[in-house]
Computed example of a mutant assay.
Amino acid sequence: MSAKKQTTAQSKLIGEHPKSGLFFDWFECEDTPATANKKHRKLTNKGISSDTLVEHLSQWVIKHHATEARIARIERKKQILAKHGFAQYMEGKVPFPIKSATTQKGNLGEIILAEYLTETSGLEILVYKLRYNPNVEQSMKGDDLLLFEKQNIQNRVIMGEAKFRSTKNKKALDDIVQSLSNKNLPISLTFVSDRLEEMGDELLANEIDDLITNLHAQKTPVTYVGFYHSESSAYQTIEKHLNSNNKNLVIVSYGEDNPAKLIKSSFDKALKMVME
Rank of each mutant, 00 (worst) to 15 (best):
Q59V: 13
M275L: 14
T118A: 11
P186R: 03
E55H: 08
E256I: 15
K78L: 04
F191I: 07
G47D: 00
L242A: 10
E55S: 15
R73L: 09
R76Q: 14
V252W: 02
N45M: 13
E149M: 13
I111P: 00
K83N: 14
M275Y: 12
S233I: 07
N182R: 10
L53V: 07
T8R: 01
H40G: 02
H56D: 11
A162E: 00
G92S: 00
K129N: 10
G142N: 03
F148N: 02
T8V: 05
D201S: 01
L185H: 07
K264N: 08
S49C: 03
E198G: 06
F267T: 00
E161I: 00
F164S: 02
L81H: 12
V54Q: 04
S232M: 10
G122P: 02
H84L: 15
F267A: 01
A270M: 05
H241I: 05
H56W: 12
L262E: 04
Q236D: 14
D143H: 08
M275H: 10
K63G: 04
G47Y: 12
H17W: 14
D257R: 08
S233H: 09
S181V: 04
T237H: 10
V61S: 05
M1K: 09
N245P: 07
L203Q: 13
K77W: 07
K46L: 08
K168C: 02
I187Q: 12
F96I: 15
